[in-house]
Amino acid sequence: MAKTQLNVRVDEGTAQAARERATARGMSVNRYIEELVRQDAGEVGHTFVEAAADFMKQYENVFAEEFGADREGTVPEGHR
């Protein structure tokens, strides 16, 4: 993926917070900001939903056996 340089101006408190949070996560400020923008744009949430849907599709037979296919949308006794 090609990278584009983006220059932004923020107050010193915001810059310091970004540095501290990036350091705490073991990443560069650039990477930290990039991840924040992706999260805000919904990319992370979209990826999670896709992964969850794939998981459910893979294991739908296991869930049907455990909880019963005719009980879709209900919670079985003992699992509430």
Rank of each mutant, 00 (worst) to 15 (best):
R71H: 14
F67G: 00
E65W: 05
E20A: 10
R21M: 06
V37A: 11
P76D: 09
G26N: 03
S28G: 03
Y59I: 04
H46Y: 14
E35K: 14
E66Q: 04
E66N: 05
A15S: 14
G42K: 04
T14C: 07
F55N: 00
M27E: 01
G13P: 00
D54K: 02
G68Y: 04
L36F: 05
R71L: 13
R25S: 15
G78Y: 02
A17C: 10
V75F: 00
A24V: 08
K57W: 04
F48T: 09
G68I: 01
K57E: 05
Y32D: 10
M1D: 10
Q5T: 12
F48A: 14
V37T: 01
L36K: 04
V10Y: 03
E50L: 08
F67Q: 01
D40Q: 05
D54N: 07
D40N: 10
E43D: 14
E34V: 13
Q5N: 14
Y32M: 00
R38S: 11
H46Q: 06
N61D: 10
A24S: 15
V29K: 04
T14D: 15
T47K: 12
E66C: 06
Y32C: 08
G26R: 01
A18T: 09
Q5H: 10
Y32K: 06
A53P: 02
E72C: 09
Y32N: 06
T14R: 07
